[in-house]
């Protein structure tokens, strides 16, 4: 029985991810091209929202990935703290800027969508606000990684920050909800009715299918970027180790 943990060996990780990376990249490109073109040009316009609704194909997947990237970091941080696999810590480090960019895309597309809908670029709606807070957490996390020189120390500190941050991000989510009830439409994509074609409150079938393709594209894109960036982090780490060896030798 082969253990999952053998991929925590950096050599093994790089070998495997090298092999997987092209497939994931192309699959992601294919999904995004198909999903976005399908979504933008081959779906009807919403009877209320007109063509602005089509930004959903960027907004929803990026928002989803913004949260899932943080979850991935949380998981990787726990693995680092418990099992001390260096690749795990580096993967968390690699995922953070991607998550931050996803959050930024979600915020920007939300603002662009909100402008015609609500008549303003920014509302202090609970969802938008909690994404803003999530973005701040990403910034703090990234800055802490950058500030600490010793790699293992940085990994330990950021892992603990990630755990504490997760708790407070969730708390903030509920606090913000309490603070302002909001205009945002509820999370309507994943409900059971979506595929059943219930058009009243939910995103209907015609919109949902290309949306799922887009989501798959974003997920694959995230995986590809994390693999690539983790490889880079491992190689950077290896360079530092080689330099250290040279200095001592």
């Amino acid at each position: 029985m082969r253990s999952l943990w053998e991929y925590a060996n950096p050599k093994k990780f790089i070998e495997t991810s090298q092999r997987v990376l092209p497939a994931v990249t192309w699959a992601s490109v294919a999904c995004l091209v198909v999903g976005l073109i399908w979504g933008f040009f081959f779906t009807p316009e919403d009877y209320r929202q007109g063509s602005t609704v089509k930004i959903i194909y960027l907004h929803v997947p990026s928002a989803l990935m913004a949260i899932n990237a943080w979850f991935m970091m949380l998981l990787a941080s726990l693995i680092w703290l418990i099992r001390r696999h260096h690749v795990s810590a580096l993967a968390a480090r690699a995922a953070a800027p991607i998550g931050a960019v996803m959050t930024m895309i979600a915020l920007a597309t939300g603002a662009i969508w909100g402008q015609p809908m609500w008549g303003t670029w920014w509302v202090w709606d609970p969802r938008l606000t909690s994404f803003l807070i999530l973005f701040l957490f990403y910034l703090g996390y990234i800055a802490l990684w950058a500030a600490v020189e010793d790699d293992d120390t940085a990994a330990d500190l950021t892992s603990i920050l990630c755990i504490v941050g997760s708790v407070f991000a969730v708390l903030s989510r509920y606090a913000v909800n309490f603070w302002n009830q909001g205009l945002h439409q509820g999370a309507s994509v994943m409900r059971a009715g979506a595929l059943a074609g219930d058009t009243e409150e939910r995103v209907s079938n015609v919109f949902a299918l290309p949306l799922f393709v887009c989501i798959a594209g974003f997920v694959l894109l995230f995986v590809a970027l994390v693999l690539l960036r983790t490889q880079t982090e491992i190689r950077a780490r290896r360079m530092r180790a080689l330099v250290a060896r040279e200095r001592r030798g």
């Binding site: 060996n9 950096p10 050599k11 001390r84 260096h86 790699d151 293992d152 780490r237 290896r238 530092r240 180790a241 080689l242 250290a244 060896r245 001592r248 030798g249």
Partner: peptide
């Protein structure tokens, strides 16, 4: 031993 911890964690297989 001229390894750093990172390499050491993998029995020297990394460098």
């Amino acid at each position: 031993a001229e390894m750093d911890d990172f390499d050491d964690a993998f029995g020297g297989a990394f460098l």
